[in-house]
C-alpha cells in the first residue's frame, strides 16, 4: 500500500516538473538573436522599397517576423534614445529604409560615413512612409 502511494506521487512529480520547467522556459523565452540568425532573405535597399511600393500586403507577409539582410548606401546616421539609427536610401525613390540598431552596435557605427555601402541585418516590421527595421546589426 505504502509503495503504491509512493509510486503514484513519484509518477505525478515526474509528469508535472518537466511541464512546469517547460512553461517557465517558454515564459522567459529570449528574443530572437539577430546576430546569430541566418538571414532568410538577402536583398538591396532598392528592391525592398520597390517591393513594398508595388504590393505592401504581400511584401509584409513575406518579410515581417523574419530576419533579412539589406544592402544599400548610407543616407543618414543618427541616434535615438542612445541607440543608432541608420537610414538607407535609394536615389530613385522618396522612401528610405530606417534601421534601428541594437545598443551593442553603437561602437561600430562611429566609423561609418554617409554614402558608404553597407549591409544591415534585422527584423522588418513593415512600411509607413519608409520601410522600418528593428533590432538591426551591422554585417561586414
Amino acid at each position: 500500500m505504502k509503495g503504491r502511494r509512493f509510486k503514484l506521487i513519484l509518477g505525478f512529480l515526474l509528469l508535472v516538473i518537466p511541464l512546469l520547467l517547460a512553461s517557465i522556459y517558454m515564459y522567459n523565452k529570449p528574443h530572437l538573436d539577430v546576430k546569430k540568425s541566418e538571414a532568410a532573405y538577402v536583398l538591396t535597399a532598392q528592391n525592398l522599397i520597390k517591393e513594398y511600393q508595388e504590393n505592401e500586403t504581400t511584401t509584409n507577409e513575406k518579410y515581417s517576423e523574419s530576419v533579412i539582410l539589406v544592402k544599400g548606401k548610407i543616407f543618414e546616421v543618427s541616434t535615438l534614445k542612445g541607440n543608432s539609427v541608420i537610414t538607407l536610401k535609394d536615389d530613385n525613390s522618396e522612401s528610405s529604409i530606417i534601421c534601428h540598431l541594437l545598443p551593442e552596435e553603437n561602437g561600430k557605427v562611429l566609423s561609418l560615413k554617409v554614402g558608404q555601402d553597407i549591409g544591415i541585418k534585422g527584423i522588418c516590421t513593415g512600411y509607413l512612409l519608409d520601410v522600418i527595421m528593428v533590432r538591426c546589426t551591422l554585417v561586414e
Partner: peptide
C-alpha cells in the same frame, strides 16, 4: 500611423502572443 510589430516587449513570448 504606427506598425503593430514595432511594439517591443520585455518578454519575447508576450510579443509573439500580442502580434
Amino acid at each position: 500611423q504606427l506598425l503593430m510589430r514595432s511594439f517591443m516587449f520585455e518578454k519575447a513570448l508576450m510579443q509573439e502572443h500580442f502580434n
